[in-house]
Design a binder for these strands. Structure first.
Lengths: 111, 111
DNA sequence: TCAGCACTATCGGTGACCGATATAGTGTCG
DNA sequence: CGACACTATATCGGTCACCGATAGTGCTGA
């Protein structure tokens, strides 16, 4: 499985606990301050891909939180150990890229 | 222009000085220890895309370095100020993603 | 009653990416 | 000498992540 930037965002959104699809979308856009968005296609197709990879599992709603469902039933997803590990590896790879950029002086402002 | 991971690698490879296409490919694979590779299509199409965006310019070979050309003439490319700035922004964005991952405890090993 | 919201889902199109292929000069090994 | 590997640029067909539009549904508030 390839870990694309968008799928990494999905994994990271789920790292703090199970969420439903729409909640993932909201969490990603919230945490990144709107710089990263998820189209509906990307979101649900991404979830299915992650399910097939065994990095996500569908779980029961748990505490059945506040907002009234209304419409199709919410589907909750949780990160598996494999999913967490995949996210960790990708983050380490990204950290190395950033480190290289710093070493090259690429991150200094063009003052 | 969207800055994909591969195009960021191209920009970073050129941050240390002008290079020709094949040299970019070699530099990227070298620096990432082989974890990031560039297919021929990605490489040359990516270069053309970056040229159109004004983030790269074609330059003269300069010092006409060691290895004998042999075959098609080498084409050298250099990073523009805009290209450098684009790389910087993307690196900052990535750094923030990594920072988030650290804050979530996602980067600790599964000991 | 009608609008709007929350939510899941699919579809067609775009474009990044890949590997194969073409072309071509040079060096090397048997 | 011939076969091969290497450097180097470029294009082509295919795949797949991604996007926005569209659809459908049930609740709430005006």
């Amino acid at each position: 499985m390839t870990v694309t930037p968008k799928t990494l965002q999905i994994l990271m959104a789920l790292a703090e606990g199970p969420l439903h699809g729409y909640g993932i979308k909201a969490a990603v856009e919230d945490r990144t301050g709107g710089t990263v968005t998820l189209g509906a296609g990307t979101l649900y197709e991404g979830i299915h891909r992650l399910l097939r990879a065994g990095w996500l599992v569908e779980v029961e709603g748990g505490i059945e939180d506040a907002p009234p469902p209304g419409g199709p039933p919410r589907r909750y997803y949780a990160l598996t150990t494999e999913g967490r590990e995949a996210a960790r590896q990708e983050l380490c790879r990204l950290a190395e890229v950033v480190r290289h950029g710093e070493a090259q002086g690429l991150m200094e402002d063009v003052s």
